[in-house]
Simulated scan of single mutants.
Amino acid sequence: MNDELRIAIRAVQLYAERHPRPPQVTITQAAEMLGLSRHTVSKMVRAGQFKLNRCGMIPVEQIDAALQPV
């Protein structure tokens, strides 16, 4: 592995360690993560594909599951 790639990988690891992912996201944030519109994610919530928590946010685990290949 060349030096530039090793440095880039380490930089990403350090960033991830210092900026942990939030446990929950808004509908707008979920839409950005999924590459969908806010309207589409709202429809998915109404259809029961995503469940909002008590704070009205989507747990990030649901987003991760939606991003997994079938």
Rank of each mutant, 00 (worst) to 15 (best):
S37C: 04
R46G: 02
N53T: 10
L34T: 03
I7A: 11
E61G: 00
P20I: 08
Q24L: 10
N2S: 08
Q68S: 09
D64S: 01
R54Q: 15
A47Y: 13
Q62V: 09
S42K: 08
A47D: 12
H19Q: 05
R10H: 01
A11R: 07
K43S: 03
A11Q: 13
R38H: 05
V60M: 05
A8P: 00
R21N: 13
E4K: 01
K51A: 15
Q62K: 04
I27S: 06
D64L: 10
R6C: 10
T26W: 04
L67F: 01
L34E: 02
M44D: 12
R46F: 03
P23Q: 09
S42A: 12
K43N: 04
H39A: 10
S37F: 03
V45E: 06
H39N: 12
M33G: 09
K51G: 14
A47E: 09
G48E: 02
A16G: 15
N2P: 05
M33L: 14
A11T: 08
C55D: 15
A65L: 15
L36N: 02
S37R: 11
V60W: 03
D64N: 04
V60G: 01
E4P: 07
Q29H: 13
P59Y: 01
A30H: 03
N53H: 07
H19P: 01
Q49P: 02
E17K: 04
R54T: 15
V25P: 08
K51F: 06
T40E: 02
